[in-house]
């Protein structure tokens, strides 16, 4: 079998000094918070693999650590422990968390494409949509204006943003359009790994459908690997073949998506699935 494109191993991320009590991997925490020292353990010992061209889903209630996990992977938030290997970086032989910050920036700009739940985190709201994309391309070393604007225009077309709006700032866009500009920006350097954090949350159904179709199309046409966080189980069912369930910073269940949804094993997964309308 092939080897993973992205491999996250024993990743932990905590906010606070920690103490001897919560240093134990199985220490009983209160909603991921250490009862003794108050440290927040947002991600605890998470391991997962994403294979080339695969979409892996992550589900879990709010506050379960999904977004922090994504932000650790793309270096937005420093991980406390653990390692991350990505096959485009030295064939997956180095822990990218150990790289220099300059190297991390380069990896962030060329290997990972991140789409945030909140477009304010992923876009400069006062720059035009076009410059948002150009900025990302500049960061990865493209220097010709003609090249940048051609690519930016074709990306905006791909995500269905009318070209006459390309010069407008995203703050003038609807939520769905902002999300699509974010996707275009994330794709501008053709990253082999896309991290999508609740990309369809808050969008109306027809826009959601368009964004989902776009994601499926990207996977099929460009063979991009994706890690998709969502609390919408229908989105996960449509996109992901394999899914991990997070609770209080830990992965409590991992499996084929249809198994997770139809024969959930863990109490928490059962609660999630039974909460479906």
């Amino acid at each position: 079998m092939d080897s993973p494109c992205l491999s996250v191993q024993h990743l932990s991320c905590s906010f606070g000094a920690g103490c001897s009590f919560c240093a134990e991997p199985d220490a009983p925490l209160e909603h991921a918070i250490c009862p003794r020292c108050g440290t927040i353990h947002a991600v605890r010992d998470v391991s997962l693999d994403v294979y080339p061209g695969e979409i892996v889903g992550i589900v879990g209630e709010s506050g379960s650590g999904k977004s922090t996990l994504m932000r650790c992977i793309c270096f937005d938030v420093p991980a406390t422990r653990g390692s991350i290997f990505a096959s485009p970086v030295e064939n997956g032989s180095v822990n990218v968390l150990d790289c220099s910050s300059q190297r991390k920036r380069a990896i962030r700009n060329t290997v990972f494409g991140m789409v945030y739940q909140n477009p304010f985190l992923g876009l400069r709201m006062d720059f035009s949509a076009l410059s948002n994309i150009a900025e990302q391309m500049l960061a990865s070393g493209v220097r010709t204006v003609a090249q940048m604007s051609a690519r930016a225009n074709s990306l905006l077309k791909q995500v269905n943003i009318p070209l006459r709006r390309a010069g407008d700032a995203p703050r003038l866009f609807s939520g769905g359009m902002q999300q699509r500009v974010q996707i275009a920006r994330a794709l501008s350097n053709r990253p082999p790994i896309l991290l999508l954090d609740e990309v369809t949350t808050g969008l109306d159904l027809s826009v959601q459908a368009r964004v989902l179709d776009l994601i499926v199309q990207l996977q099929r046409e460009l063979d991009v690997s994706m890690l998709v966080v969502s609390h919408d189980l229908a989105v996960i069912r449509m996109l992901a073949q394999r899914t991990s369930v997070m609770l209080e910073g830990k992965i409590v269940e991992q499996g084929l998506t249809d198994q997770i949804l139809e024969d959930p094993q863990h109490r928490h997964t059962q609660q999630l699935v039974h909460s479906l309308l």
């Binding site: 499996g255 084929l256 249809d258 198994q259 139809e262 024969d263 094993q265």
Partner: peptide
């Protein structure tokens, strides 16, 4: 049947 397809564990 679903066990064969691994929808059930």
């Amino acid at each position: 049947l679903r066990s064969v397809y691994r929808t059930n564990l």
